[in-house]
């Protein structure tokens, strides 16, 4: 309990929000809309987990939104050109992975600060896309949507897939040697190096994995609608980072869990529909979102302060 105070405080705030919704707006808990909500958030969850891993190795990636858009648009164009889904998905993952590789090489090998590198790639990729597509939608062929399944099968598959992926990542981070390397490098790169870990390789690998996850997430989003908007994913980086840090991933590296990220993302994802269900005017939304983020992290601060005073 003590160790996971941040995660629990987020879960607590989320539970409070849900309880309030159950009291004031029980309609929130209908199966079909809730399933849709979860399916819509599944890509963000995957991206947020990737970002969390990057933060755990004491780096940051703010270019995920642009990577997401690039993967989505290229995947959409390929699908529109008649490629089968079985070929489009690996290509999307590959593109995501190589974008991650570029970031990773610049960060790990040139030793540039990751926030700067990914700030540059955020802007550069987004503007490239603007230049090439000028905002035009990509219309997809029918068979792409829901991977050729029925809608509810597709939605369950996406939600299940995202949760499965999170479970695998959670297990891997906890039980695989490679997972522990992330924490080691994030806590103290020099100590990790002395312990026989190669911090650069770990950092590079994390960025590549992050990119590949973004590619997967982009596909999870593409299959949910018959059109791709090139602007898709803009602002995703902020949501993913917010989910990660609210969910207890320490920005200073070496600490955090994928489960915390899941709780953080669910909290953030619920705010907007909750506003709709509680009939609160939209112009209050950002202020309330800010307050909820602060509330979720303040618990930890207050507690530490009390311990400190003791």
């Amino acid at each position: 309990m003590n160790r996971w105070i941040r995660e629990w405080s987020v879960v607590g705030v989320l539970a409070l929000l849900l309880a309030y919704l159950a009291w004031r707006a029980p309609a929130f808990f209908q199966l079909q809309p809730l399933l849709s909500l979860l399916a819509r958030e599944a890509p963000s969850l995957v991206v947020a987990c990737g970002v969390a891993m990057v933060i755990i190795v004491r780096q940051i990636d703010i270019s995920v939104g642009s990577q997401f858009s690039v993967c989505s648009v290229i995947a959409g164009l390929l699908a529109a050109a008649g490629w089968p889904l079985a070929a489009v998905v690996p290509v999307a993952v590959l593109i995501g992975g190589s974008l991650g590789l570029v970031n990773g090489l610049l960060v790990a090998w040139l030793g540039l600060p990751s926030i700067v590198v990914t700030l540059a790639t955020l802007v550069a990729l987004r503007q490239c896309l603007n230049l090439v597509r000028q905002g035009e939608f990509v219309n997809l062929p029918e068979r792409i949507q829901w991977l050729g399944l029925s809608q509810s099968q597709g939605q369950w598959l996406l939600v299940g897939g995202a949760v499965g992926l999170v479970a695998v990542l959670a297990w891997g981070l906890r039980h695989l040697a490679a997972g522990r390397w992330l924490y080691a490098v994030g806590s103290d790169a020099e100590a990790a190096r002395l312990a026989g870990i190669r911090p650069r390789a770990v950092t590079l690998g994390t960025f590549v994995l992050m990119g590949a996850l973004t590619g997967i997430a982009a596909m999870m989003n593409v299959v949910q609608s018959p059109q791709v908007q090139p602007l898709t994913g803009s602002g995703l980086e902020l949501k993913a980072i917010a989910a990660a840090v609210v969910g207890g991933v320490a920005i200073s590296g070496g600490r955090g869990t994928v489960w915390g990220v899941l709780a953080g993302l669910l909290l953030l994802a619920c705010i907007s529909p909750a506003m709709v269900h509680l009939h609160i005017d939209a112009y209050w939304e950002k202020a309330i979102q800010g307050l909820i983020i602060l509330a979720a992290v303040m618990v930890e601060g207050l507690r530490r302060r009390r311990n400190h005073a003791r």
Binding site: L238, I251, G290, L291, V297, E300
Partner: peptide, 14 residues
């Protein structure tokens, strides 16, 4: 003693 990034992310929205 909260991390500046999280605090100002919150106030960014607020």
């Amino acid at each position: 003693r909260l991390p500046p990034l999280i605090v100002t992310l919150g106030t960014y929205s607020l």
